[in-house]
Design a protein around this nucleic acid. Structure first.
Lengths: 102, 102
DNA sequence: AAATCTTACGGGTGACGTAACGATC
DNA sequence: GATCGTTACGTCACCCGTAAGATTT
């Protein structure tokens, strides 16, 4: 499982329509459909109920959606925090160092 | 950025030695070294200080390590929760439905 | 037939392994 | 020279796009 699977999954879960999700991801339907299928295999359960006029989330899908969003958000945060750490020197900013010259 | 990068990064951060990390990941050194480099590019900062006798984490690296571990743990949890949701029917277990026949 | 998701099939990017290199002790 | 990490280069997997299929309204 890779973050790509989570990004794709969230898009489909939000659109409830593979074609629209694919468009939003600048992707074509078949690869997206495939990746969702692969994800379901790896997770070990169906995340969607396929039906005409789109897809519906299963209970497992709803649970997984919350987690996936959280993971993606944390991934972005991880990058930002690392950048901040590299710039700010370190640790949550303290407004002035005791005895600091500036 | 993909989970692969985080898995690789955590391994190197724990071993502080690319060769050992590569062995642990059943991988050879060069691709691992490359992926770490790619990750640093994507994050936008050096995560390690290269030196003889291994590598040392930068401040950004230490920050990123915490996040990476958390993300990987949450990924595993996401799968487990989805599986549980699919088995358990749904939702945090309620011991009996009010008025339910069972 | 129009819309949906899926399966089939080829092509290209990129992750990997082997080999060669550079640097430090 | 032994042991690090890195660069170079060829191979193979796999992700993607196009085309064709199955199903439902």
């Amino acid at each position: 499982m890779e973050l790509r699977h989570l990004r794709y999954f969230v898009a489909v879960a939000e659109e409830l329509n593979v074609r629209q999700a694919a468009t939003r991801l600048h992707l074509s339907q078949p690869p997206l459909s495939r990746q969702i299928h692969d994800l379901e295999e790896e997770v070990g359960t169906k995340l969607f109920v396929r039906s005409q006029s789109g897809m519906r989330l299963t209970e497992a899908g709803r649970t997984f959606l919350k987690e996936a969003r959280s993971i993606l958000a944390q991934s972005q945060r991880a990058v930002q925090l690392a950048q901040a750490a590299s710039r700010g020197g370190s640790r949550p900013p303290r407004y002035r160092l005791r005895g600091g010259r500036f």
